[in-house]
């Protein structure tokens, strides 16, 4: 692997609260090449905050510190708002969970995709059409003219992905991109992301609470808890995880082919969060 696309070293994010500072991310380090990196964890583990701090999309009162936070050699910590705007969308994109809240309800979906294309003008419409085809929407001419409320959840998510991919980003951060979708639609959306990583050499950060999905889809996985990385593994070895937190999560999942009467519940150890 050549030089990593994204390098994160000792990332710390703190939110001030009335009861004192809340440390949402406490010293996370990882690097990403042209690969699929999964970040899994339960709610409050800091996985989404980690994804958002790469894009400087946290509220202004959040304090973001890191020894290193660089994208393609560029330091993101010292980048000006203008420089961040130039990166955001065009080189680093973010796909969020719910298309209902992320698409503009009063704008045709095709126009929203065209707006994301880098070179505006006559080519943008054609490019939007190509993107709709790339995410396997069968009748792009028709879908181009629809409003968000006229499309299903699965199609809405594909439209979001089309929009985020229109400027051909080098890095896509997908925060629970398929959690609201049915399993069969989820599979089709993942196949699109899979192709983009394989064919275009895009880097992908896939944030999810679904361990089995991440294990089957990603190359590497970071398991987060309480703002820290508990362990990092090759995705295909996730079932052999050694950390008690990862093991506990995997054990607590019901499975189709098992007949355990009682599911083991997770015992959290305060030592996992000791400094």
């Amino acid at each position: 692997m050549s030089k990593p696309l994204l390098e994160v070293e000792d990332l710390r994010v703190t939110f001030p609260t009335p009861t004192g500072p809340f440390r949402a991310v406490r010293g996370v380090s990882f690097s990403l090449g042209r690969e699929r990196l999964g970040i899994v964890g339960e709610s409050g583990s800091g996985k989404s905050v980690t994804g958002r701090s790469v894009l400087s999309l946290l509220p202004p009162h959040a304090r973001v510190e890191a020894k290193r936070l660089s994208f393609d050699g560029k330091d993101l910590l010292t980048a000006s708002p203008g420089e961040m705007r130039a990166l955001r969308g065009s080189r680093i994109s973010l796909v969020m969970q719910d298309p209902k809240y992320s698409l503009n309800p009063v704008m045709r979906v095709g126009e929203q995709i065209a707006e994301a294309v880098r070179d505006k003008g006559a080519g943008a419409r054609r490019r939007a059409m190509e993107m709709l085809e790339a995410v396997r929407i069968r009748d792009p001419e028709r879908v181009f003219n629809l409003y968000p409320h006229e499309v299903s959840g699965g199609m809405g998510q594909r439209i979001m992905i089309a929009m985020m991919l229109a400027p051909e980003p080098d890095l896509l951060i997908a925060d629970e991109p398929t959690s609201a979708l049915d399993v069969t639609v989820q599979m089709q959306v993942l196949a699109i992301l899979d192709d983009l990583v394989a064919k275009r050499g895009m880097g992908l950060i896939f944030i999810s609470h679904d361990l089995d999905l991440v294990a089957s889809f990603c190359d590497r996985v970071l398991v987060m808890y309480g703002g820290r990385v508990m362990e990092e593994r090759h995705a295909r070895d996730l079932r052999q995880a050694t950390h008690p937190y990862t093991q506990g999560l995997l054990d607590s999942l019901p499975r189709i082919d098992d007949d355990r009467a009682e599911l083991p519940t997770l015992k959290r150890d305060p030592a996992w969060l000791k400094d």
Binding site: D194, A215, I256, D259
Partner: peptide, 30 residues
């Protein structure tokens, strides 16, 4: 029958396959 993953209908078979996690092959044939 569900635990043995031996449904009668093709629809249920597809649902079971898709629930197992990501598989390029399965995704292409949905």
């Amino acid at each position: 029958t569900l635990r043995r993953q031996e449904p009668r209908e093709a629809y249920t078979r597809q649902l079971l396959l898709a629930s197992r996690g990501y598989d390029r092959e399965v995704a292409a044939n949905i």
